[in-house]
Computed example of a mutant assay.
Amino acid sequence: MSRSLCFAFDFLDPWGWIAERRVRLALDQARVDWPVRYQPFRAPLSKTAVGGSYQDYLQRRFGSQTRYHQKQLFDEAAHLGVPLRALHIERTPDPLPAMLALAAATPAQAPVVFDALYAALYRDGTDIADTTALAELLARIGVSEQPPDAALLDRLLTDEQDVARWSRHLLPSLRLGDAVLSGAQPPAILTQWLLRNAQQG
């Protein structure tokens, strides 16, 4: 029976990029071919941070450990081949336009759109709330921009409520059936979790 792995993340958290790469590695190591359903989510802190200084947002999130977390982030990015060496963000963007772009993507397009959006925000410092910049980004990766869709927005907001319930706002998070694993876990832990759930499935 085909199973789907739900990956919940917040675009304003760069660890989501690391977590996705680790999930891909773990799926290969576990030798399970489950589709990944990307579920973008805005944590409460992210919603209130929009328009403000991104460094202030990080400070509010990590406090005195901000520099330590950034060093960990860059070290792990280098290890995984993620093009992330600095956070070129001044003002915290509203991630909703990017979330809608990802939600409109086909399952085959979703990994490419996800990676492109993260690279645009964290590598290039692109304002992913700018609809013109977003349209240009999608065109560069060969994805057609979808017109505004009220039904898609409603579905995205409903999914956010569902994610808030099962993730308890601990992001990034994975869900497979009733099993949930929180945090950007190392590939070895992710692999064990996947294998354990594969056996139970």
Rank of each mutant, 00 (worst) to 15 (best):
residue 122 Y to K: 02
residue 112 V to I: 13
residue 50 V to N: 07
residue 129 A to Q: 08
residue 132 T to Y: 11
residue 17 W to D: 05
residue 136 E to V: 01
residue 44 P to S: 11
residue 23 V to H: 00
residue 70 Q to D: 09
residue 121 L to Q: 11
residue 128 I to F: 02
residue 47 K to A: 13
residue 23 V to S: 00
residue 66 T to E: 15
residue 95 P to A: 09
residue 62 F to R: 06
residue 92 T to G: 02
residue 78 A to H: 14
residue 53 S to M: 14
residue 75 D to S: 12
residue 114 F to Q: 05
residue 15 W to S: 09
residue 72 Q to T: 03
residue 10 D to V: 01
residue 34 W to G: 06
residue 26 A to T: 02
residue 86 A to I: 00
residue 111 P to G: 05
residue 70 Q to L: 14
residue 64 S to R: 12
residue 119 A to F: 08
residue 44 P to I: 03
residue 89 I to W: 06
residue 66 T to H: 07
residue 28 D to P: 07
residue 20 E to L: 15
residue 87 L to F: 04
residue 60 R to G: 04
residue 82 V to G: 06
residue 108 A to K: 13
residue 124 D to C: 05
residue 49 A to I: 07
residue 11 F to S: 03
residue 78 A to C: 13
residue 92 T to M: 09
residue 55 Q to L: 10
residue 13 D to N: 04
residue 47 K to I: 11
residue 128 I to L: 07
residue 75 D to W: 09
residue 22 R to W: 14
residue 96 L to K: 10
residue 20 E to V: 07
residue 112 V to T: 12
residue 19 A to T: 00
residue 32 V to F: 02
residue 102 L to Y: 04
residue 63 G to A: 05
residue 133 A to M: 10
residue 62 F to T: 13
residue 87 L to A: 05
residue 74 F to P: 15
residue 27 L to R: 08
residue 126 T to G: 05
residue 50 V to K: 04
residue 18 I to Q: 14
residue 36 V to P: 05
residue 52 G to P: 06
residue 74 F to M: 13
residue 13 D to V: 00
residue 131 T to F: 10
residue 26 A to C: 02
residue 19 A to S: 00
residue 54 Y to I: 13
residue 73 L to I: 01
residue 67 R to S: 12
residue 24 R to Q: 15
residue 63 G to D: 10
residue 9 F to S: 03
residue 121 L to K: 03
residue 19 A to Y: 08
residue 49 A to D: 12
residue 108 A to M: 04
residue 120 A to L: 09
residue 54 Y to Q: 09
residue 19 A to D: 00
residue 10 D to F: 00
residue 39 Q to S: 11
residue 116 A to K: 13
residue 105 A to M: 04
residue 51 G to R: 07
residue 31 R to W: 03
residue 106 T to N: 12
residue 130 D to C: 06
residue 108 A to F: 02
residue 121 L to P: 07
residue 42 R to W: 14
residue 77 A to G: 04
residue 78 A to M: 08
residue 22 R to D: 08
residue 16 G to S: 03
residue 74 F to A: 06
residue 76 E to W: 11
residue 135 A to R: 15
residue 60 R to T: 02
residue 115 D to A: 14
residue 55 Q to K: 14
residue 45 L to G: 09
residue 124 D to E: 15
residue 24 R to M: 11
residue 100 L to G: 12
residue 136 E to P: 08
residue 89 I to G: 15
residue 99 M to S: 07
residue 27 L to P: 05
residue 119 A to L: 10
residue 23 V to Y: 01
residue 22 R to G: 06
residue 55 Q to S: 09
residue 18 I to K: 15
residue 17 W to P: 03
residue 136 E to W: 06
residue 64 S to E: 10
residue 112 V to M: 14
residue 126 T to K: 09
residue 17 W to F: 14
residue 53 S to D: 14
residue 61 R to Y: 01
residue 116 A to M: 13
residue 22 R to Q: 11
residue 68 Y to E: 12
residue 75 D to P: 03
residue 59 Q to N: 12
residue 95 P to T: 04
residue 132 T to S: 15
residue 83 P to N: 09
residue 130 D to W: 01
residue 100 L to I: 07
residue 88 H to T: 11
residue 31 R to C: 01
residue 48 T to P: 00
